[in-house]
Design a protein around this nucleic acid. Structure first.
Lengths: 155, 155
DNA sequence: AGGTGATCTTACGTGCACGTAAGCTAGACG
DNA sequence: CGTCTAGCTTACGTGCACGTAAGATCACCT
């Protein structure tokens, strides 16, 4: 079977590796109704469409959307319909979201500015004390970031 | 006393109103060592510097930083010092963070694109069914977003 | 037959960022 | 004088997004 055909399918592990997340997370998203992969017996079988949805989910998460909000967006793509009032609500909420995201972009620019300033300070300070530490990546100093349970939001 | 002098102080409520957060949150940040306002008897008295720190905290939150990470950045501004190794770690982490934020900016642009697309679909659909709902803001349709307990992260 | 690896379900546990009473103080007001 | 209003502390509760066993299934390998 052709590996890049639109009919191609994925196992849970494959998606986890590709997108750097856990199987638990995928099952959790399924629980919340964000993805609904087919089954081969008990095993989940993800289609290209599922993969695209997952990509949107993770992208949404990264910009601070709650899973529930991501769900609303995804639902829209199955749209077909849903009462017009509901759609109007969605529209208004999305417009809100766009506003929020654009202001968030500004925040990011500011934060990057702050961080670069901070880096400059640190570089100056290190240059005059331990210049050999200047170019080390994180891994060379500490093991690996543990990525705990969290995930804050950003409304 | 001049209200805009750099010696001006703020009550907890004033900051809460200005930055749209709760007193509980401010005390929580204090608990975590992110702010340390003076006291007048029992009452907290926030200086201009405290206000600036709060602004940085909230800005950091909005871009998905954990409070612990925000703490590290803030500590840097008192810098004075702290072992060179610790500083090198901070530097590496900040560089990581900058990378993450810049990729997050990209995500935001993509998300905004998705949302605008979604809005277009909705507008098209509504135009042909209930055109009078097109320009309603959220408030006109639903009460007010409750903003529950949450807040996700974005590393 | 036994073992390894990937998958599953069920279900309790965790970390973060607060929310939410409950009960105490101290100044301001009529 | 009582009673708001603002603030405080202590402490248990909450919502979200998973983490983490525990135990079972099935394919494949040796």
């Amino acid at each position: 079977m052709e590996l890049r055909s639109p009919a191609r399918t994925f196992t849970i592990r494959q998606l986890c590796q590709e997108f750097d997340c856990t199987a638990r997370a995928l099952r959790f998203y399924e629980d919340k109704g964000l993805i609904s992969p087919e089954r081969d017996g008990m095993n989940r079988v993800y289609s290209y469409k599922d993969r695209a949805r997952l990509q949107l989910i993770l992208r949404g998460k990264r910009v601070g959307l709650a899973l529930s909000e991501i769900g609303e967006i995804l639902d829209l793509y199955e749209l077909g319909d849903g009462g017009a009032t509901q759609n109007a609500i969605s529209l208004a909420k999305f417009r809100d979201r766009i506003q929020a995201l654009e202001s968030q972009r500004l925040d990011i620019d500011l934060a990057v500015g702050v961080l670069k300033e901070a880096c400059s300070r640190l570089e100056d300070h290190l240059r005059s004390t331990r210049p050999e530490l200047l170019e080390q990546p994180v891994e060379a100093i500490r093991p690996r970031r543990p990525r705990p349970g969290e995930m804050r939001r950003a409304g």
